[in-house]
Amino acid sequence: MLLLEKLVSASGVSGNEDEVRSLLKSELEKKDTGYRVDTLGNILVENPEVEQQGPPRLLLAAHMDEVGLMVTSIEDGGFLRFDKVGGIDDRVLVSRKVLVGSKKTPGVIGSKAVHLQKPEERKKNLRAEDLYIDIGVKGKEEAKKYVQTGDYVSFYSPLQELGHSCYKGKAFDDRAGCAILWELLNEGRLPPFHAAFTVQEEVGLRGALVVGNALDLDMALIVETTSASDVPGSKEHEQVSRLGAGPVLSIMDASVVVDKGMLDTLIRVAEENEIPYQFRGFNGGGTDAGALSLSRAGVKTAVVSVPARYIHSPCSIINREDLHYTRKLVELFVKEVKGKK
């Protein structure tokens, strides 16, 4: 799982996936795996044998980008104002360490000290527009040496083992998927499939949209990370998924209705191989599956996700077993659909 650690420590806010892409590119090159990068920055690993073997022409996809921030202005005092890139709950922002721009200048997200806030102010949650990034400079001019408006900002949160079987970190959504995809690309004995590491999922599934136009596909399986809410205060029916209960199968989300044939295959493969699995108990949220399923004349799609607590925050938690089983399920699925015609 070395690669996962490298992947989550890379910055890759939507639209600025360079670091993650470079990392994956060099890993692919090490293994002599052919790939191309398209105009938007998606990595496409096209396997010529897919066309030769014929249907179902399968794509596995995971997105490289993560949610983050963007610097919108530098105030006279050198403080940075920002916008959110992708969906972030304002409440997770305050009191964070962040890395700003390509130089990865460290900064912290500050707010007016609680002592100075009036009682009414304390009753309200802090909103993104009340917050700013402090990079520790004397003023605007000095700040400009390190930062420009438009710089991307990513959370700082190194991967750490937690308890006996968990990892804490940022951007598991969807570096976990990227790591699984990369491993499967190196799994020599698998039948041929295409793979895509997409960009800009968090700002509207934009990378996957053009991937779907570029490739002629019959089937796409998205390897994602989804919200686990098995925490105090969440009733059983509000949990979406649970940590440690195995890969999460989506039935439907706001972007797609999963193909029933693919879902049945996933369930059967899991049961035959004693892989624990769970259904995603929620039909909101979107994934690259939405964009891919509607590309060209339509593509059958399904989504398998690693459950993660506190998703879209700097401190999310995943479970190693879930990761392992998700990978295994995807691998067996590839063998199953491509093995028999």
Partner: peptide, 22 residues
Amino acid sequence: TEPHAGPTPTDARSIQITGEGV
């Protein structure tokens, strides 16, 4: 210069995602 954190409210929003990407 103006930073936009997501899809812009302009034609660029559509242009970028046509075909294999522009």
